Computed example of a mutant assay.
Amino acid sequence: MPLDETSYAERKLHPDAYFVTLPVPYDLARRKLFSAISQRYPLDNGSRFSVDAHNFWLTESEVRQLDDFERGKIAKIEWSTRATPSFAPK
Rank of each mutant, 00 (worst) to 15 (best):
M1Q: 05
P2Y: 05
P2K: 12
P2G: 02
D4T: 07
E5L: 14
T6L: 12
S7V: 02
Y8N: 04
K12V: 06
L13F: 02
L13Y: 03
H14M: 05
H14N: 15
H14A: 10
P15A: 03
D16Q: 06
D16G: 01
A17W: 01
A17R: 02
Y18L: 05
Y18Q: 03
F19T: 04
F19N: 00
F19W: 13
F19C: 01
V20I: 11
T21Q: 02
L22W: 01
L22A: 05
P23D: 08
V24Q: 06
V24F: 08
V24H: 05
V24D: 03
Y26I: 09
Y26F: 13
Y26M: 09
D27A: 14
L28D: 05
L28A: 02
R31H: 11
R31S: 13
K32V: 05
K32N: 09
L33E: 15
S35A: 11
A36M: 07
I37C: 07
S38G: 08
Q39G: 04
R40K: 15
R40Y: 02
Y41G: 04
Y41K: 03
P42H: 10
D44H: 09
D44E: 15
D44S: 13
N45A: 07
G46S: 09
G46R: 09
S47V: 03
R48P: 00
F49S: 04
F49K: 02
F49T: 05
F49E: 02
S50T: 09
S50A: 14
S50L: 07
D52R: 04
D52V: 08
A53G: 03
A53S: 11
A53V: 11
A53Y: 03
H54G: 00
N55H: 06
N55Y: 06
F56R: 09
F56Q: 08
W57G: 06
W57C: 12
W57V: 10
L58H: 04
L58T: 03
T59R: 10
E60S: 15
E60Y: 04
E62L: 08
E62N: 07
E62K: 08
V63S: 01
V63A: 00
R64K: 14
Q65Y: 01
L66H: 02
L66G: 00
D68R: 15
F69A: 08
F69H: 14
F69Y: 15
E70D: 13
R71W: 05
R71N: 13
G72L: 12
G72E: 12
G72M: 11
I74A: 10
K76N: 13
I77R: 07
I77M: 11
S80L: 09
S80I: 13
T81W: 08
T81E: 10
R82N: 12
R82T: 14
A83P: 00
A83C: 12
P85L: 05
S86W: 07
F87D: 06
F87H: 10
F87C: 08
A88R: 15
A88S: 12
P89M: 07
P89G: 00
P89A: 06
P89R: 14
K90Q: 11
